[in-house]
């Protein structure tokens, strides 16, 4: 044998070596999952148009980078401009409203023109995965099929390394990515106005419905704007994910998705 092969199989004498401590209760409740949690210690990335760090609804933003073209090459540089569109700030405010003590990180991939957006999203996601953020919110998608395979590979990389990708579903009759991938948590809107209501969808590809209607989101100059759209449903689930991870560090994306399912408003785990 020249090199050890990766452990794609489990020998009998290795079973003891992979025991997994489980403190899950027989009946998973919201109180167990996230009761008293603040998001402290959890790194949440907003892959979007930048984040306005001065807004009272957002508070501190730990790191801010922009993914930009310099000639034909893509570089990740410190973000000097901040949010030029407003969308990323709106999403960040929603996350902060649920997980007040999480650490926010902004990776700006939108807003500097429409050329090469798919390439910037790919590079931005790759950067976010390299940083090993716990949660990445993606209230965006690309319709370009040529990016689907690379996005899919990145989404799987994130899944296996323990980075949770939360993506807003595209509620239009077009194919878009990455929200359709099973390695991300895809989110659509329900019509209620309670941020603590979320539903598991028995008919994927949309896996969860969260609040997406009439939300007062952070907007330029410290103001707010009342908005409706799937863009704001995804950060609700991202915020909830941060809460669960702050109370139960080290959960895999599979385990986290299971907890969100078990504690959804339509699965009996709400109380």
């Amino acid at each position: 044998m020249s090199e050890d092969l990766p452990a794609w199989s489990l020998t009998a004498d290795a079973v003891e070596g992979i025991s997994i401590a489980s403190n899950w209760p027989e009946h998973v409740t919201r109180e167990w999952a996230l009761g008293g949690a603040t998001g402290a210690g959890v790194d949440v990335c907003v892959l979007d148009s930048g984040v306005d760090g001065d807004h009272p609804l957002i508070g501190d933003v730990d790191t801010r980078v922009a993914v930009v073209f310099e000639g034909d090459e893509i570089h990740v540089v410190p973000d000097e401009e901040g949010d030029v569109v407003g969308h990323g700030s709106a999403c960040a405010g929603v996350i902060r409203s649920l997980a007040p003590e999480c650490r926010l990180h902004s990776v700006r991939v939108l807003g500097s023109g429409n050329t090469g957006t798919g390439d910037l999203i790919l590079a931005g996601l790759e950067h976010a995965i390299e940083q090993r953020y716990d949660v990445v919110n993606m209230s965006l998608s690309t319709t370009k099929r040529k990016f689907a395979e690379s996005l899919h590979e990145l989404a799987d990389d994130a899944y296996f390394q323990g980075t949770v990708l939360v993506a807003s579903a595209h509620n239009m009759p077009v194919e878009s990515y990455p929200w359709r991938f099973s390695s991300v948590i895809s989110v659509g809107s329900h019509e209620g106005t309670d941020s603590w209501e979320w539903y598991a969808n028995p008919s994927p590809p949309v896996e969860f419905f969260a609040r997406g209607v009439d939300i007062d989101v952070a907007w330029f100059g410290g103001s707010t704007l009342r908005c409706t759209g799937n863009s704001f449903a995804a950060p609700h689930i991202a915020g909830l994910a941060a809460l669960v991870l702050s109370k139960h560090p080290g959960l895999t994306p599979f385990q986290l998705k299971s907890i969100l399912y078990l504690t959804a408003s339509n699965t009996g785990g709400k109380e």
């Binding site: 979007d48 148009s49 569109v85 969308h87 939108l110 807003g111 429409n114 957006t117 209230s139 965006l140 998608s141 690309t142 319709t143 807003s168 595209h170 509620n171 239009m172 878009s176 009439d214 704007l225 009342r226 908005c227 409706t228 759209g229 799937n230 863009s231």
Partner: peptide, 11 residues
């Protein structure tokens, strides 16, 4: 345009 997502805004 940049997000590809529909939106409704009031106020």
């Amino acid at each position: 345009l940049v997000t590809g997502q529909p939106i409704v805004i009031n106020d």
